[in-house]
Amino acid sequence: METLYKCVIWDLDNTLWNGICLEGRVEPRDEVRRTLEVLRDRGVLHSIASRGDEAVARQTLESYDLRKYFVEPKINWLPKNTNILDIARTLNISLDAVAFVDDDPFEREQISYMLPAVRVIEAGEAAALPDLDGFNPGVLTAEARTRTRLYEEEQGRQSAAASYTSREDFLLSCRMQLDLRPATAGDAPRVMELMQRTHQMNSTGLLLSESALLGIIRDSEEGPHLYVAELSDRFGWCGIIGVFLAEVDGPQWQVALFAMSCRVMGRGIERAIISELVDRATARGCRHFRALYHATERNRMMRTMFQMSGFRQQGMRDNGSTFFELDFTQKPTRPSWVSVI
């Protein structure tokens, strides 16, 4: 599948603006601002890896109203590969979903050598960035348009976490509300986006066309059930963060897709979702609850989640796919800090 870039990391001097900010006046490049806006509205995050004096650069960014486009800017004297790695880790994005824009051939070469997975782009190409392959997800959702703000709210959560004396107290104070509901036609773009963008917490990598998706939504009484999970907490609305497809055959339920956004990892949400899915299935007569799993290089976390939630592996096919079956005596407990509506 074609790579979709989730984060563009920018150099500052002679890339974001013309001139060198430590040496005096700079002039922002209008075409770069347009690129920043277009990509931001498509759900791409922007960050900064620049050598220089942080205070001066921040002041310059503020004075031209550019600061608002960026998350996790790194302006210091460390090698850029160190900063890029740091940004990718903090944002929980893999390096092959990162692009780096710089005017300096040395810096570009250094990144190509040190971090070959990163896509390296010359500053002169900045205006054309939105037209390049991998920068257009095809679907535009409310979650994508507000991703930069959502990320900033997440930073609020992280810094709030530091002031609590227990992790559970902190999680409880966030007042997380999870709404697990059948998908509607209006959810289709976001469902497709989650199918394309989630890799770590994605059980099978199943991709469906929009028309197939709409068909499932329309026939959900007879056919497979498609659920979405919407999350909110005291910091704001996180949007639709997960999608789950369950095939039902009498008392047997089989989860053909479990996909959850990496943005909300670290809060035990996946346990709340799986336990709620199991409860709903049980209430509807389910006696065998299975989950398909197709191993990739990146979704080991998904296997761990199933196993730690009381599922046992039941067989392996040649293509690497397998399924897990729930041992109902080991049903996962629901986290105390997530209320499900």
């Binding site: 917490m201 990496c262 346990r271 989640m305 730690m308």
Partner: peptide
């Protein structure tokens, strides 16, 4: 890695790491 810094928190060796929100699937990996 999993608990708020600066605060000396209790972590009993029989505490359930998942039920207390200490780690989840991502943390376990």
């Amino acid at each position: 890695n999993c608990l708020p810094q600066k605060v000396q928190m209790t972590l009993g060796k029989e505490d359930n790491l998942f039920d207390t929100g200490t780690i989840d699937s991502a943390g376990l990996i």
